[in-house]
Design a protein around this nucleic acid. Structure first.
Length: 285
RNA sequence: GCCGAGAUGGCGGAGUGGACAAUCGCACCAGACUGUAAAUCUGGCGGCCGAAAGGCCUGCUUAGGUUCGAAUCCUAAUCUCGGCA
């Protein structure tokens, strides 16, 4: 019986802390599904927590200038989850990157089609219009299926051309079979979330962010800093907060349409008890 | 006190007699997204009615004025910023 527990939701809702408690109660190990925390040396800015006595996998997978994507994540996480099963423990997938979580649970067949650097280079300077025209010419069926947003999105158009151009079939990874998946979602009202984010940012700013940024610069990772929330606007805390709030909103836009999530408002005083009750029932089933 | 410059939507900032409810950027709201998801992209964004097309009202510091017509010209007031005292 392979069960998977998922704890998702926007940033600053206390996912890791909850996951750690549940891991203790139910003999679990954590797998982080967070696209920022995979980078080494970026600890404070990405909010890595290391709960005591609990294993958490998925941090520090690549250098800040390394290539990473859902595909790498899936390969890593599936291996890890299988390993956790082998040891008779419960894997708990915890994080705010909805795409990564979905990729683990559902069969997303295209994500393992590799990059085509030559093609990407050719398409690099083309506008969305040009890319779409090209797509329409070569793959009219796929092209007309696109929505208005994707039609204007150079990055996604490039990727689609890349996917359709290949004859390489995506290889099957050793995907674990999940018999039973429980999705838990942590959320809060807009105001509550904004407040939590503010506090969190201020704490991180006080607790070593300056030194972390400097050491990253010293190591030469300025490109990575320039594109990462928290680092790119440092030391402007207001901007950091705004970016973090916007990020939380984007996360919610993704999660809102996921019907399998059981939502809990972290402002409710008894939400943890209710979660424990639910998990217990599911775990013993 | 005198001389200059200026006051535009939540903010920055265009517009300098009609095409202006007012380019654009930020913020904000909603959304898309099966290999960059920390990314990228789409729509909305004065008020009211409407599904929409569209309609009505208010509006560019304030008060007057000129004009068929003003954010744009004139007068005065208030405030801000530079220079001289």
């Amino acid at each position: 019986m392979h069960k998977l527990l998922i704890i998702c939701g926007p940033t600053a809702t206390g996912k890791t802390a909850l996951a750690a408690r549940l891991a203790k109660k139910f003999n679990g190990e954590l797998v982080s599904a967070d696209s920022r925390q995979v980078y080494k040396f970026m600890d404070i800015g990405t909010g890595k927590d290391w709960p005591e006595g609990i294993k958490i996998w998925g941090y520090d997978l690549v250098n800040p200038d390394g290539e990473f994507s859902v595909s790498e994540f899936v390969k890593f996480a599936e291996k890890k989850i299988n390993n956790i099963y082998k040891r008779g423990k419960l894997p708990i997938l915890v994080g705010g990157t909805g795409f990564y979580i979905k990729a683990i649970v559902d069969d997303l067949d295209r994500i393992h089609i590799p990059r085509n650097l030559k093609l990407r280079k050719e398409l690099l300077n083309k506008t969305a219009r040009e890319l779409y025209a090209l797509l329409l010419e070569k793959f009219p069926k796929e092209a007309t299926k696109l929505n208005a947003s994707d039609k204007a999105n150079p990055r996604r158009l490039t990727r689609l051309l890349e996917v359709l151009n290949t004859d390489i079939l995506p290889h099957k990874t050793g995907k674990p079979r999940f018999d039973d998946v429980l999705w838990l979602g942590l959320m809060a009202s807009k105001d509550e979330l904004a407040m939590r984010i503010e506090n969190r940012v201020e704490n991180r700013a006080r607790n070593g962010m300056q030194a972390e940024v400097q050491s990253l610069i010293k190591k030469g990772y300025t490109d990575a800093l320039a594109k990462t929330i928290g680092y790119k606007d440092w030391p402007d805390l207001d901007k950091w907060k705004t970016e973090e709030v916007k990020y939380a909103k984007r996360q919610m836009t993704w999660f809102k349409k996921e019907p399998r999530i059981n939502w809990f408002d972290v402002s409710n005083s008894n939400f943890e008890q209710r979660i424990e009750k639910l998990v217990k029932k599911w775990h013993n089933k």
